[in-house]
Design a protein around this nucleic acid. Structure first.
Lengths: 214, 214, 214, 214
DNA sequence: AATGAATGAGTTTTCATTCAT
DNA sequence: AATGAATGAAAACTCATTCAT
């Protein structure tokens, strides 16, 4: 008896997988070489297809890049928004979980390379920078801001300015990511153990945020 | 009476100044646009010369970049090595001075952009990365390591591992530099006052390093 | 009771209609965009089939274009040849009918766009130009020439040179066609009423051709 | 003794001539092959330079085409505007001279191919069509309209609608141009002797325009 | 020393054509 | 018969590098 999900002929299953294969290849190539230096032919070869095939799925280099960001980073932000919306427990726990999710699912993976790439090349590709700012930076920041506001309103956090506090939360993580992820491999830089850093950072931050209890 | 260093007629002094003007223009352009995206024509225009003139002084783009690094960062490291070699006073004072020099003359100037650039694009230009590692990272690190060793040998510092300690010294400065250079242009990060940060950092570090006095 | 030409089941009739649908779509696309700028994918989409299907019926773009010309213009010329061959009446009547048929079935329909296209792009596609010249221009011209000869031989027309006279017949019709098809879209040209033009033109021409009757 | 206009070194004189050489090559190529089918490399080769050189003088294909139009057609229109502005004689004479100038300097030269090209491909390149309409069609038409108005105001012409009359003037010339210039060379079309056509056309038109004298 | 015109290899993108299913 | 995914040749455009003057 045949499994119901396998009734399609093989090439059709292949077709459905194509975009994912291309996005995976593109992610690797972008992270390895940067945006400008990535040649679409290399992305295609990496996915085992020809140059032209890429254009069946993505209109151009920019759209390919955006798709990579959407399919990975934006999707993760969406999950995090879901998590936050449905979470019932204490705000500190939520905040810690979000920071950890960000670290583990983005910063500590090859996706961290995308952030590095935007830092390095964003200036030269204003439309990409705009896109990244809107879809990632603004949306991610505002999620943290909302969680902070929630904690303050529920009396769990001290009444800090949630926008400024968001920046204070974000900065060390991005730095750690640059440090861990993207340092020149040839450079003998000091290793910072990321897990410990994040643990200490989150613990410290939550302690600092905790509202005074009389 | 003529200053002894100015015996040449003016237009010849101008000629001698050419390389410096080119290096200055190149530095600005590299910092603004990154290595890959910098067009030599823009460098030339910025220096007020033709593209061809650039090639009279620098064999190619890579050599131009190396020259920028040498003329600025490596030169500063050389001075620092001189300072260290001729300094007679306490090692803590020397160490603090070196950190401060690094901050003030490199990190806090446009040269900081070169470090950011190497972090971002080093992967794509292995030969540049190698050069930067050899001429800047290794040489700078080893200077700090020697000063630490000096301090330990003279009984001024606790007997820490000087190589590891070097990395501990370097990391916060680079982080502060990335921070200050506002590496995420779209992100309005809170300002960290660099001077205070450095003061506190140096003071803390030196206190931590100080050998126990019975 | 079934019509005798409709004995096939419906889906099969549909199948037979395929080439016609494709030719119709191709005609529209060629007229709208010109030969070079017509993309076969657009033709296919317009006909509601896939690009591959096009190649089941036509070997390539050029053959598709030729088929459009054959199926429409050449077919009409064939009919006209039949008409002329079987016509028994006065040559003037025949000539007028042929001119009118040409105008009404070709020039005044979208097929006029094909003529415009050949005028405009023929130079760039010598093989198409050759084909068009052989199948349309030469064949059409020779039909008029034969009718003129017939009229002269039967003593109905003055003894003009039938080849030159053919050219005199053709020119105004093509001009009117170019005019009617508004070949300069940006230019709001005054409308020439084509029916009146053709009526006057044919009447005048026939009067001019009529042999002197003693 | 050296001629004063030849003091420049040879390559510099060459440089000054470059744009003209490129424009001439581009004109030929555009007229021969149409806009879309013209490859910039062929234009370059025709001018005896490399592809890249073209881009030193013209930003892209579109600008090259515009430059061809400006340098030839628009320039001629400018001259005609001058002629018209400074002309003192009877309006009929002026009008006839303008029509003849148009015919001789544009329609009867390779520049006529540019008009054909716009007719054929204008639809596919809206920006070029816009440019051509603004710089050529509108400007040329308005010149004729002004001359007609001048004649009417001076009582030389009957009080026709000058805008409509402009179109009536333009149409036959464009048709003649299409006929003379751009017919498929393989087609045995009747030759219309252009000079005679223009003479008759102008004479007829001026007679028709002449104001009734009591 | 200085110029800047010239080059051509390299990259993105398009589209007629093929072919496995 | 029909599909539509895949291909790759071709063309526009960029820019590091060369070289005649």
């Amino acid at each position: 008896m045949q499994a119901p999900q396998d009734t399609k002929p093989r090439w059709e299953r292949r077709k459905d997988a194509r975009p994912q294969e291309l996005l995976a290849a593109a992610l690797e190539q972008f992270v390895e070489r940067g945006y400008a230096a990535t040649r679409l032919e290399d992305v295609a070869r990496r996915a085992g297809v020809s140059k032209g095939t890429l254009y069946l799925y993505f209109a151009n280099k920019e759209e390919l890049f955006k798709a990579v960001v959407r399919d990975n980073i934006v999707a993760t932000i969406g999950e995090a928004e879901q998590d936050a919306a449905t979470f019932d427990g204490p705000s500190g726990e939520l905040l810690g979980a979000l920071l950890m999710k960000w670290w583990e699912e983005i910063c500590a993976t090859p996706l961290g390379g995308i952030t590095k790439l935007m830092l390095a090349e964003g200036n030269n590709f204003p439309e990409l920078a705009q896109f990244y700012n809107d879809e990632v930076v603004a949306r991610g920041s505002s999620l943290f801001t909302r969680v902070l506001t929630r904690g303050i309103e529920r009396g769990e956090f001290r009444p800090v300015d949630p926008v400024v506090m968001t920046q204070v939360l974000i900065a060390p993580v991005i730095m750690l990511m640059m440090w861990t992820h993207s340092f020149m491999p040839t450079c003998d830089m000091p290793q910072i153990p990321p897990q410990e850093f994040m643990d200490v950072f989150i613990a410290t931050t939550l302690r600092g945020l905790k509202a005074d209890t009389p």
